[in-house]
Write a protein that binds this DNA or RNA. Structure first.
Lengths: 341, 341
DNA sequence: CTGAAAGCGCTTACAG
DNA sequence: CTGAAAGCGCTTACAG
């Protein structure tokens, strides 16, 4: 079934010239006469010649493959980033190998290893939730260009591309304050989550800037932020003696859970309690009331990360240094905070 | 910056044995003495030896890379399939290169070409919406195992893995009939969509089986099925003199659009008009009322497609024949058809 | 049980 | 302008 493949050798034999000449002709080497070059190219086309990338990569120590490692491909935000990475890769002539860790640190390490072994030219990576020991990553970084995005770590001296979650949250909280909210709760993850912590810092700064006292009862954390947890933590918040008048959730999923619970208890949104999420996911326009949320421009992240990687592949850096690129983002105001004051 | 890499040669030199022996020791060749083998393996570990997969693949004409081509990675259904493909690939020792066509036929052809050139061992593919000329695919199929999933074509003699959309839709329509609906509308795509047509056949069969006359006014088609189109086509349907009492949409997105429009016009769901979608997407549980929908087991599709591909890679088939694997699926009944009769 | 050698398909410094 | 030859890192048939 499998067809015989055309090689340089075959073309050379038919044309009765050397393999070197064929190779050069096909690579537009200036030395080759126009005549020869044309002859070779015509025949190559006719025979559907396809260079064997393996031989080529092997020879040139460049594979034009980049590896991408992400925790979970099902996340819409991650998909958006991947989509842009694929596009940019194509534009720059790279193929993309994707691996998913499912937040398993052991797998993460293995995948990093496999990718290096495969000779990828560089790696784009979003850390798993539980990555504590960064040694495997440092080891990889020593061998090939590596760039982190979204889930990053300041223990790794490389380029890192993230959303400016601190400022974004700051703006979201100020928006709540502007519509008259004073008891603003936050549903976040535990401390080990870098993104959650940045957002929490924004929350704290906004309260401080506006002279609103911090009430620890309004700060609730969970290990795995999700729609369900959004529901249960909201139940917890509304059973407080002094209820919150707004809830900021560090993900849309949790915010949707919050909305569902508030509706169940007939609490008016946003009059009694306003809600803000983070992601601008598809769902945020499907829930009722429509969710105010922070945009998460995955496209920008993917674009910048990929372009940085291409640059580092082509011009390897001498010294490893941490360089964080923070992308500004916008608050998208919808019904869940739309108060006619 | 880049570290010196360990090769067989280096290990051989240090141990003062031949490269062949090192290679055999590492590959557990039975000939090698236990002692030598241990010595080699220990040193290899110590030096972090990683076989150069390019040299290996090049030598063995096997890359352990498979290519996946899909129209759009942002679709939740596609992501689910990809997730399972990645998992199965890992289990079977394959790496996965993913490309996205965005329904561009020209790109589809290029990607197919690039993948072959890259020496993938096999290809998993979901056709773009506009694929008419299947020659490039037939050409690829002649060179490497290729399996289609979800978006398939009966013009291509290969294994194809799909949802049984005909039966699924048949069941959905019978469910509507069982709750007393008689004027059942369908929102579908135009004829060139294979999946849409299969679902439409199920619709027709269900009506026929239950002696319900077909009313052409209740059959509406669009080129690009979407939430927006769900809205506008629903407006169209409810402006009919004889309104439908149920709407079946071939995607969840369109069904959500339908629900939004019905609510806007204060039409009761499901009492006045019931709605069913297709996908069991995340959104289907977020809309209110929650959407009755057909599950689309992406996991099963990914699993079966990948396993078929691995089989074909390991035991190439002699003759190319079409073989369609249809996966049964379930109706998930939620509020949008939950009538207390 | 081990080694020398050929070869996978390609590129490129060297020679002419 | 063109060719012969080496070499990328590995595997394996052949010989001992």
């Amino acid at each position: 079934m499998k067809k015989e493949v055309t090689t340089l050798k075959k073309i050379a034999q038919i044309l009765e010239i050397s393999i070197s000449t064929v190779s050069r002709a096909l690579n537009n080497h200036p030395d080759i006469s126009h005549e020869t070059s044309k002859k070779v190219k015509d025949l190559a086309r006719k025979l559907h010649y396809m260079p064997n990338m393996f031989a080529k990569g092997f020879r040139q120590h460049k594979t034009n493959i980049i590896g991408v490692i992400v925790p979970n491909i099902l996340s819409y935000f991650i998909s958006t980033i991947l989509k842009e990475i694929l596009l940019q890769a194509e534009v720059n002539g790279y193929r993309v190998i994707i691996s998913e860790t499912n937040n398993d640190v052991k797998k993460e390490k293995e995948m990093l290893h496999t990718m290096l072994q495969f000779g990828v030219d560089g790696i784009l990576m979003s850390l798993s939730k539980n990555t504590v020991n960064v040694d495997p990553i440092l080891h990889a970084l020593n061998q090939k260009p590596l760039i982190l995005f979204d889930k990053v770590s300041n223990k790794i001296p490389c380029t890192q591309v993230i959303i400016d979650g601190e400022e974004a949250t700051f703006n979201a909280i100020e928006h709540l304050i502007n519509i008259g909210k004073k008891r603003i709760a936050i549903i976040k993850e535990f401390e080990q989550s870098y993104n959650s912590e940045r957002r929490f810092q924004g929350y704290l700064r906004a309260l401080k800037t506006n002279n609103i006292p911090i009430d620890k009862k309004l700060i609730v954390s969970t290990h795995d932020i999700s729609l369900k947890k959004g529901r249960s933590l909201t139940s917890q918040l509304i059973s407080l003696k002094e209820k919150p008048d707004a809830i900021f959730c560090i993900t849309d999923a949790a915010a949707i859970g919050a909305i569902q619970t508030l509706k169940k208890f007939n609490i008016k949104i946003p009059e009694d309690i306003a809600v803000i999420g983070f992601s601008n996911s598809l769902n945020s326009t499907i829930v009722e009331p429509k969710l105010t949320t922070l945009d998460q421009p995955g496209k920008r992240i993917g674009e910048i990360a990929m372009n940085c990687l291409v640059t580092e592949i082509e011009e390897p850096k001498e010294h490893l240094t941490i360089k964080t690129i923070e992308i500004k983002t916008n608050l998208i105001i919808r019904e869940s905070t739309l108060l006619s004051i």
